[in-house]
Design a protein around this nucleic acid. Structure first.
Lengths: 365, 365
DNA sequence: TTGTAGGCGTTATCAG
DNA sequence: CTGATAACGCCTACAA
């Protein structure tokens, strides 16, 4: 029967060093030496090898090399959501910097699921990545479990574990929020609505602390109604802002605790027919290119994304270069920068009568 | 001398199959069989193996497997600039979909440099990725050269080569622009300023064609001054918009040809003290979350990013599964969707006298 | 300076 | 069903 043999597998990889060696009439060793510059080779033989490489189109097989050397020159990067411009920027810097150091990056996004995160970490470990840069999701134990027994360096970004077991690059979230709060307070705002991320997370907790501490320091009582707990997402922030602004005694300023929630909050302001900063001042966490493109230009806390990426890579690469001298976990804490633009205005001479507030309350449907 | 031997390299990888086999008292083959489900194993021995794996914490080494099988289950993804939300979104979908199909992604960003792109492609090929998804930069020849001799499937995103040699997923850029232009024309706009990306690129060319064709079809002469050539960047668009809006006879609507240029254009509008859409209507290419958060809400052409990502992965995975039946390169062309929001308004009852134009002309410095 | 040969951890082809 | 054993392509002592 004219049955074409289906078992025929196409050659999985191209020409090998052996092929080059044969073509050039030298040994495999010599080829390896010129490819890796790992030993002196006479000019004449080197030339022959180089020509042979060119002639048969040899491409060096990193998989085989990795198996032998135990290094893949690959770093696993796992983030919650690369769609969030903060992570996008950080990942871009990380990729760039790792490339400069000779490493490739394997990217995993877990959509903020601890299970997926564990799966990705496992996958990356199987693939023998030389190191891991993780912006972790879930609780400490889940991460610990996923990292259990990993004999490779790990750098945490954006948060640490309680026991500081790994190198970490974080922002001083509390200080950053405090700076923004002081700005708002200096403008005369006293009723400031905070739209918090999940307070069970590292960033959520510290940012919330910054809010509360600032109020306390200013002698302003903390009203639970003014502090809405969300989960870092735009939709939640939208409804939170709606609640805040249509309540009986609305704040004069609102403060969404990350970029996504800023979007939601701004939509709410707009949908209520309010204008910023005339009706309500807004300051946000995380800066992004669009923040200053529109009216109002958003006053935000900019995270030093480049620095965050660079430091993460620096910590990791230092450990990768370590010759078995174990250094204690290090922690780099960076500062945010308040970018004052036009979304906040001084709270001057508000109409003394409470009338407008009632009018506002009715605006809510 | 008490010299600690520095040559001691830490064990590069953990427990091996051999270790598991020994612990379980079976052969390596049996271990491999239960790990991969590649052969029937008696329940009793399977259990022993599973326990041994658990006991010594065996993690399967994908590098060794790849060397043997010739497959890495890894796909190289190379894009120009992951910081551009369009690419961010597409990459996010690609990563997600590839993961579902059992592939990891190695990400490379070339910052729109053809040299870096070539370097990244070479690096990925060395690493024996099973396939490539590329949003190419530079000219056809440069890409061809980088791909020369690659025996792996390649899918192009966002553009094709002239000879359609590879699978590709693209947008019908011309049709998308045409739709937006018709919207503008239906609103009564006749002087429409176009801020083009680099017309030497696939997207730049087709979008520009859409602009010109629309004007032509409407019987409106094309004025070179109304068509500013940029390079897809915000800064260039900023100055382009400035030129447009301060010229002697400014357009009533402007059309930046991608999201980055939209930012630049909006900044220019704002810096000139103009308001959108009252003074000038704006429609942009590429949608993004912030587009509808501010005032005005931006009217944009949304690319089907999810579909783009899904189709790219589908094409690639289909080829990866191919059993040596070569299929001709396929090309998937998707449609953009005009999201009408509030950044354009009808051009009504303009003052009939030419006076205002002259007045405006003086506004130009 | 160059060649030889053993192995990195798996998979897969043989026999048993 | 299971066990030896030969690759996979490269690096690297060790020898020459």
């Amino acid at each position: 029967m004219p049955e074409s043999k289906p078992k025929r597998r196409r050659k999985p990889s191209g020409p090998t060093m052996a092929a080059v060696a044969e073509k050039a009439g030298v040994s495999i060793f010599t080829v390896s030496a010129v490819v890796n510059g790992t030993a002196q080779v006479s000019d004449e033989r080197r030339l022959r090898v180089e020509q042979a490489i060119e002639a048969i189109g040899y491409k060096h097989n990193a998989v085989a090399r990795s198996l032998k050397t135990g290094r893949t020159l690959t770093i696993g990067v796992v983030v919650g959501d690369i769609t969030n411009p903060f992570y996008t920027d950080v990942v871009a810097v990380i990729q760039q910097e790792l490339h400069r150091s000779g490493y490739a990056v394997m990217l995993c996004c877990n959509d903020r699921s601890a299970e997926l995160q564990a799966e990705h970490i496992s996958l990356l470990r199987n693939r023998m990545v030389d190191g891991l840069i993780i912006s972790p999701v879930g609780n400490d134990e889940q991460l610990q479990a996923a990292l259990e027994g990993a004999r490779i360096p790990v750098v945490l970004v954006d948060r640490t574990l309680r026991d500081n077991r790994y190198d970490a690059v974080v922002l001083d979230n509390k200080a950053a929020v405090t700076e923004a709060m002081q700005y708002l307070l200096s403008l005369g705002h006293r009723r400031i609505g905070f739209i918090s991320g999940n307070p069970a997370t590292y960033t959520g907790r510290h940012r919330l602390e910054g809010y509360r501490a600032s109020l306390k320091a200013a002698g302003i009582p903390i009203e639970d109604d003014l502090c809405q707990l969300g989960g870092f997402r735009a939709e939640e922030a939208y409804t939170a802002a709606l609640r805040l602004l249509t309540g009986p005694n609305p704040p004069t300023a609102i403060f969404p605790a990350n970029n996504l929630m800023m979007i939601g909050a701004m939509k709410a302001v707009r949908d209520l027919g309010l204008t910023c900063p005339d009706d309500v001042s807004v300051v946000g966490f995380d800066d992004f290119p669009w923040a200053e493109a529109f009216i109002p230009q958003l006053t935000t806390i900019a995270q030093p994304v480049r620095q965050i990426g660079e430091e993460s890579v620096r910590l990791l690469v230092e450990r990768l270069g370590e010759k078995s001298k174990p250094v204690a976990p290090r922690r780099v804490q960076l500062k945010g920068e308040l970018k004052v633009r036009t979304s906040c205005r001084p709270l001057v001479a508000r109409k003394a009568t409470p009338a407008p507030r009632k009018a506002r309350a009715k605006a809510g449907r």
